[in-house]
Amino acid sequence: MKHERLVDILQSLSNVMSTSGDESEMRRALRPLLAGQVDELRVDSLGNLITLKKGTGESQLRVLVTAHIDEVGMMVVDHTPDGALKVQAVGGIDDRLLPGLNVCVGKEQLPGVIGIKAIHHSSSRERLKAIPLKELSVDIGAENRKEAQRLAPVGTRVTFSTQAHPLGELIAGKAFDDRAGCTALVALLHEEPFPFDLYGVFTVQEEVGLRGARVAGYAVAPAVAFVLEGTIADDLPKKEDVGPTSQIGQGPVLTVMDRSYISAPWLLRYTVQLAEKLGIPYQFKQPGIGGTDAGAIHLTRGGVPSLTLAVPCRYIHGPISLLKPADLEATITLTSAALRHLTAEQLANN
């Protein structure tokens, strides 16, 4: 897929509002992008968008590739007498980032703001403390409880309102975790058929416990699975000599072990050897951090060897993250190569 088209898809998907459990907008955005590129498409009972791209028939393998369509955000849980919205986090949100933000409320995309007590009225002690989410509220301009209830009833989703845009050599936008992976999966589904049937699944509810991937993994029952992600790049300058988790510009990030799973050693080795042979840059994710849908998929049925390939992104889980298109492109190239070289013999021998 052409560079411009890829960036265009990434930006358009990044702008979609799709918190865990409320992913209709992402499915709606994906359908036209997948039209004509897949042979079957269905939505399961959790909301996973399950597509099948039929293979050339050379191989009988059944392979699953996933990317999750949910993003972290908030949910309205109550209203104050003054018309403000009380919210709780959907997935892991960093409370420190919220004060001073614009947000987007509900299907109607009502604008809202999160303000805090003026600095003039805050004690020196208060100024040092991060304010927990339960003490914050969202102001949509409603004048009283009744109006707030009408405009944003309990259960309404609240998301960051960032619109994606280029920034220097990078792209800025919200929800690159995991719109980066979604973009990569769309690009893969646009390629020529693979030797085997490829199930491309856009999963739901990753951020609240890898829920969609678990049932999709069970339904598809693949022989092997690849999970496409946008992952943490903690590559800012630091006083201490500690790991960066991953670094922007260094190519796809391969997981060795995170909190949710350990990559099948042979699958990791195979992918690394391919990357080296083809001259594709790659890096290892610092072990022991985070978790992905692979954590759920590898435990389905009799077990599924799995590997996560991720695009390094700065500031994920916040209102605006950054990635380098070259990393996204290299992730697609490496995943495509890993898929196309995969054989049933490799699986049997490991």
């Binding site: 865990s20 009972s45 959790l46 849980v77 986090a89 959907v90 997935g91 678990r214 049932v215 339904a219």
Partner: peptide
């Protein structure tokens, strides 16, 4: 009452939903 629950409900519903291919 409406009970908005942004993540795990801590009830049997949480276990049931992800049985097999998923259950509404």
């Amino acid at each position: 009452h409406l009970d908005p629950t942004p993540g795990a409900s801590g009830t049997d519903a949480w276990g049931i939903q992800v049985a097999r291919e998923g259950i509404p």
